[in-house]
């Protein structure tokens, strides 16, 4: 018996149907489970195992291999600061310091309140706008440490339900790698990457 609601089960079937072998769908299903429970719970990983034909231990081994599968509950806002080479040369470490100081959360941790999780990450492919950071995987480029502080303060005070690249960039960003002048609004509503098929809401859906 599946623990998932009918809608999530439908999605699971659809995702599995995309591959010649159900085992191949383990990563998409892990994203689905993460969206379902907020993070990867043991029950969620067992559920993925039952759908894919892996053992629960195999699923856990996959889940813990990849940095973006989170097996602990995160804050509402996951702030990921790039400290990779291009950002390091242009002040990424200072941005991380500012974020840690403003939120009171050292990298790799979540505050008691469940508001912020902070992490430092490898290259976000935004070197043209270094230093770069993401909030719930929505990109903000070219921020000074002060702008990063303001961004954190804004998150704490406004508690936006959804965050989106364009809006954050305009308020708290600087130089940007590229901008496609897209009219459609996309926003992330939780500390997960905003992919349509895994049940993550985009602003257009709400």
């Amino acid at each position: 018996m599946s623990l998932w609601p009918a809608e999530t089960q439908e999605m699971a079937k659809k995702l599995i149907g995309r591959y010649p072998d159900p085992k191949s769908a383990v990563m998409p299903l892990l994203y689905l489970a993460m969206r379902q429970d907020g993070y990867l719970t043991e029950a969620g990983m067992r559920e993925v195992a039952s759908w894919t034909g892996h053992t629960p231990a195999q699923v856990q081994s996959v889940a813990t291999f990849y940095g973006m599968f989170k097996t602990e509950r995160l804050g509402d806002y996951l702030v990921s600061v790039c400290t990779s080479i291009s950002c390091m040369l242009l002040g990424g470490d200072e941005v991380l310091d500012a974020v840690e100081d403003e939120t009171g959360v050292p990298h790799g941790e979540t505050d008691a309140e469940g508001l912020f999780s902070v992490e430092h990450v490898e290259c976000l492919g935004a070197c043209g706008g270094a230093p770069a950071m993401q909030v719930n995987y929505e990109l903000v480029e070219g921020s000074t440490p002060d702008q990063a502080r303001s961004l954190c303060r804004w998150l704490r005070e406004e508690r936006p339900e959804a965050v989106n690249t364009d809006a954050m960039q305009e308020q708290f960003g600087g130089r940007r790698s590229f901008d496609w002048a897209i009219t459609e609004d996309n926003s992330a509503v939780g500390p997960y990457p905003a992919f349509g098929p895994y049940g993550t809401l985009r602003r257009g859906d709400t």
Binding site: S86, E122, C123, G125, C127, G128, S177, F178
Partner: peptide, 16 residues
């Protein structure tokens, strides 16, 4: 899966 620190051409092609 463009991961080399400092590379972002694949991102540009896919996005642009």
């Amino acid at each position: 899966d463009e991961g080399d620190p400092g590379a972002f051409m694949d991102r540009a092609l896919l996005e642009g």
